[in-house]
Amino acid sequence: MLAVNYTNLRENMKNYMDKVTDDYETMIVTRKNNRNVVMMSEESYNNLMENLYLMEDRANYDWIMESKKQLQAGKAGIHKLKEVE
């Protein structure tokens, strides 16, 4: 995670925005009176929101974790899809 003060960010906005988007960095922009903000790419933000959505339902979270355990234990398989008319 990067940290930059507001003045430095303003002077180098393009470079910092490129760093955030190209390198998937998250940046804290420090401001007076500890009124900091976080800058992240839209792709990272969307990923974060999707993960929050998937994990907010305990039953869904448990199902995902169980599936992960099965995959790690080698209990995964490939199946042909059935076509539905």
Results as ranks from 00 to 15, higher is better:
M40N: 02
Q72P: 01
E43L: 11
M55P: 01
E42G: 08
E50T: 14
T30R: 12
M39E: 00
M13R: 15
A73H: 10
N8F: 02
L71Y: 11
L9T: 05
M39G: 01
V38D: 03
D22C: 05
L52Q: 11
Y16K: 01
S44Q: 15
A3I: 13
V4D: 00
L52R: 15
M17R: 05
K14T: 11
K14L: 06
V37E: 05
L48H: 09
V4C: 02
K69N: 13
E83T: 10
N33P: 01
M39D: 00
I64H: 02
T30D: 03
E56W: 10
Q72L: 14
M39A: 03
V4A: 01
N33F: 13
N47P: 01
V84G: 08
E43K: 14
H79K: 13
M1K: 06
L81P: 02
S67F: 10
Q70R: 15
K80Q: 04
K14W: 03
N46T: 10
K68R: 13
E11T: 10
K14F: 03
K32Y: 03
R35Y: 05
E56Q: 15
N51Y: 11
L52D: 05
R31E: 14
R31M: 11
N36M: 04
E42M: 10
L81E: 10
M40Y: 02
E43Y: 03
S67N: 14
I28V: 14
E42Q: 08
M17P: 01
D23W: 00
S41Q: 00
N34R: 14
E43V: 13
V38F: 06
R10I: 06
Y61K: 15
M13W: 04
M55K: 09
K68C: 05
S67P: 00
T26Y: 02
N12K: 13
I64D: 00
W63A: 14
Y16T: 01
K19A: 12
V20G: 00
S67D: 12
N12Q: 11
E66T: 12
Q70A: 13
N15A: 14
E50Q: 10
T30P: 06
I28D: 00
M13H: 04
Q72E: 15
L2Y: 10
K14C: 01
E85T: 14
G74K: 08
L71A: 14
V38N: 07
S41W: 01
K68E: 08
N5T: 11
E85H: 12
I78R: 09
M17L: 15
K68P: 00
N33M: 12
V37A: 07
S67L: 10
V29N: 01
E50Y: 13
N34I: 04
M65I: 13
S67Y: 11
M49D: 05
A76I: 11
N60D: 06
Q70V: 03
E50H: 10
V29I: 15
Q72S: 08
A73G: 11
V29L: 15
D18Y: 05
M55F: 04
Y61A: 13
E42C: 07
E56F: 15
S41K: 00
A3S: 14
Q72V: 09
V29W: 07
V29M: 12
Q70I: 04
R58N: 07
E11H: 09
I78T: 11
K32W: 02
D23F: 05
K80G: 03
N8H: 07
M55W: 02
G77K: 11
E11S: 12
A76V: 12
T7I: 06
M49Y: 06
T26R: 04
L52A: 12
E43G: 06
Y16D: 00
V38E: 08
L2K: 08
N51G: 11
